[in-house]
């Protein structure tokens, strides 16, 4: 990071609070906080206690500017969002060829917990469905369960810039009710797609889903991917730059469960959602978006989170394949004089 004087850095933090872009986010927050559609995930009691009114939006830029509105500090479990990042770690551990031989990258159109493998190759369809994520978790290197878990937590620390913890009741509950995932694992073991340390791998899988994050963390994780794998604030590398494109592409094609096709068409920002209510979305080279709002639509995606991403994509032309001049210029809104924003 460039050295700045105290006055400059304080001025810049105040500019982020008062910038027209934060005002824009605040308006989005106000517009959607009253939306009461969707339902909080309740397949385990620990998730059902989430407050439906919780709502946070955070945007982090590849230069390290952070814009927050609403509740950006409350913690919730990362759930499926971890899958994209653990996939990246598996790629680092084994390389593209090996990982591809065990997990395909085809969208399924099936629900995330479907017990289905590719009929010809017996591979799970992609790393974002449970089957694929269990397979990638199995690949995480380390001596025993403790070291493997530590490597996953260390990786998330590099992405978020802070130590993360696991919500133990959620982990225990996921484990106690995880027979479907156990079935998927045994099916894959049958086809030699995973190793026989099934209990250890499933524990690791349930633990990584139970990591506690907030919307700011999700924005930093996305901004790190957007910044070619380097955390924009700590400047620490979180993932080998070669594999950033792998992670972002499966997010684009498979990240939003069986809504991924429509998501790519309507929003066009590679993203991953989790049933805890989080969404992390990557605009390569520019920003990371993190949203938190527990009520989910029937596909399992956060209702308010989708609306926020849709509006950001539309208003600032953030769709990957957008060629038209957007209504608003993102950099102008972020760096503009606070007084110039919409009052």
């Amino acid at each position: 990071m460039v050295e700045t004087s105290n006055l400059e850095s304080l001025a810049s933090s105040i500019q982020a609070v008062a910038s027209p872009f934060r005002g824009y986010l605040q308006d989005l927050y106000e517009q959607y906080k009253g939306v009461m559609d969707g339902a909080v995930a309740d397949y385990i009691p620990e998730l059902a206690i989430a407050k439906p009114e919780s709502f946070g939006i955070c945007v982090a830029t590849v230069d390290g500017q952070v814009f927050e509105v609403g509740d950006c500090t409350s913690l919730f479990t990362i759930q499926s969002i971890s899958k994209a990042f653990v996939y990246g770690l598996a790629l680092e551990d084994h390389g593209r060829e090996y990982v591809n031989s065990k997990v395909s990258v085809e969208p399924t159109g099936e629900a995330f917990n479907a017990i289905v493998l590719d009929e010809k190759t017996n591979r799970p369809y992609n790393p974002m469905v449970n089957a694929g994520a269990i397979a990638t978790t199995d690949m995480i290197k380390g001596k025993g369960s403790t070291e493997r878990l530590k490597r996953i937590l260390d990786m998330f620390k590099r992405y978020t810039g802070r130590e993360l913890d696991i919500n133990v009741p959620v982990f225990l509950s996921e484990r106690a009710t995880g027979n479907r995932n156990r079935a998927i694992a045994y099916l894959m073991l049958n086809f030699d797609m995973i190793t026989n340390r099934i209990d250890e791998t499933l524990d690791l899988y349930f633990q990584q889903c139970s990591i506690l994050v907030n919307s700011r963390d999700l924005a930093m994780m996305a901004a790190t991917l957007a910044n070619n794998g380097v955390n924009p604030i700590t400047q620490e590398r979180a993932i080998d730059g070669r594999y950033v494109q792998d992670v972002i592409s499966v997010m684009l094609t498979c990240g939003m469960y069986d809504y991924s096709g429509e998501w790519t068409y309507r929003v066009g920002i590679p993203a991953k959602s989790g049933v805890g209510g989080g969404i992390t979305a990557v605009v390569p080279g520019r920003i990371g978006i993190g949203t938190f709002s527990p009520p989910l639509d029937e596909k399992g995606n956060s209702v308010r989170g989708i609306k926020v991403c849709e509006d950001l994509a539309k208003d600032f032309g953030l769709h990957l394949f957008n060629g038209a001049k957007p209504d608003r210029d993102l950099e102008e809104w972020m760096n503009g004089r606070p007084a110039d924003g919409a009052w």
Binding site: L10, A11, I14, Q15, V17, A18, P338, A339
Partner: peptide, 12 residues
């Protein structure tokens, strides 16, 4: 203070 910085920053 931070608050006066903010007031100054957002003022026309």
């Amino acid at each position: 203070s931070k608050e006066t910085f903010l007031s100054i920053a957002i003022s026309h």
